[in-house]
């Protein structure tokens, strides 16, 4: 998505009150205004104007800023982790391109979210915290490649669950929701790749998808990342009973969300 086009669509400050209502609450306003949202989305607004205008619908904006700053915190963690891994030379040569690509995506997410929080929503993008990827001396990800891979998997699987857990909190804003979904699936692609890489190297026997609530051979401290993934109840139905498919496969077929407190509890292991 072109960022400038996105900024145009997201700007709540340059629109009249009906349009603001559409921006913040398309679902409520949808029937009333028909396809007006499409027309207004085409209005071009130079970036500089956005920050100069007074804020409107403050509560909604602040709620979005809160969610996006939370996402940004996780992206800071992931980016810094991969950058340090690449700098440390811990990654095997054949896998360098994979982790450079993942690093590039995480950096792009950091920059994108920083831009949206700061220049579109007029908030203060959260600064990068100080990280301790040894988790108090327990891990050596930058000297031991299997550990690097293990924590990479832990971060990617956490990221998938974290974004999933926020979808409902940003659903009133189409553009933010779509961007969050578009990051969410990228994290899932990363997770699948790293999980399979660990199994190919003989570190684990896991698959690209999460079976039951298993953390495989990951350290016990990561179990919270997989708790709840054993769920087979969806929309009030036990899918194993509905389909006769074994529960391992059913749990693999649905990923589960984590809420902010759960995720920050996991991430806090790695805060300095």
């Amino acid at each position: 998505m072109n960022l400038l086009k996105l900024l145009d669509k997201m700007c709540p400050d340059t629109q009249n009150s009906d349009q603001k209502e559409l921006f913040f609450s398309r679902r409520e306003a949808f029937h009333k205004f028909g396809d007006m949202s499409k027309k207004m989305a085409m209005a071009a607004v130079p970036l500089g104007i956005l920050s100069a205008l007074p804020k409107v619908a403050k509560a909604d904006t602040e709620s979005l800023i809160g969610v996006l700053n939370y996402a940004l915190t996780l992206e800071h963690l992931e980016y810094r982790y991969y950058q340090m891994g690449l700098d440390a030379g811990v990654i095997e040569g054949a896998d360098m391109a994979i982790f450079e690509k993942i690093r590039d995506h995480e950096l792009a997410h950091v920059n994108f979210l920083t831009e949206v929080v700061g220049n579109v929503l007029g908030g203060d993008p959260v600064m990068e915290p100080a990280f301790d990827f040894t988790a108090g001396g327990n891990f050596s990800p930058f000297t031991d490649y299997p550990t690097f891979l293990a924590l990479s998997q832990a971060f990617e699987d956490t990221g998938v669950r974290a974004y999933k857990g926020q979808a409902g909190n940003v659903m009133e804003n189409d553009v933010v929701l779509t961007a969050a979904l578009s990051i969410h699936s990228v994290e899932a692609r990363h997770a699948s790749m790293v999980r399979r890489l660990r199994t190919k190297k003989g570190h684990d026997s896991i698959k690209g998808w999460i079976t039951e609530g298993s953390n495989g051979t990951l350290p016990a401290a990561t179990q919270a990342i997989y708790d709840g993934e054993e769920n087979v109840m969806h929309g009030g139905v036990d899918v194993t009973q509905l389909t006769g498919i074994d529960s391992a496969a059913v749990t693999e077929g649905w990923d589960e969300p984590l809420n902010k407190d759960q995720v920050l509890g996991i991430a806090s292991l790695f805060l300095a």
């Binding site: 679902r27 998938v160 999933k164 979808a167 409902g168 659903m171 189409d174 929701l177 779509t178 979904l181 578009s182 969410h184 699936s185 990228v186 994290e187 899932a188 692609r189 990363h190 997770a191 699948s192 790749m193 690209g208 998808w209 969806h234 929309g235 693999e252 077929g253 649905w254 990923d255 589960e256 969300p257």
Partner: peptide, 28 residues
Amino acid sequence: NGAGKFIQDAGYLLIAGKIVSVEARHAA
């Protein structure tokens, strides 16, 4: 990913989210 913004009900959105990441794991 494209349909998400049209979903009205948060419960359905979550169900779609639970499935789409598995599709992404498959695709990768």
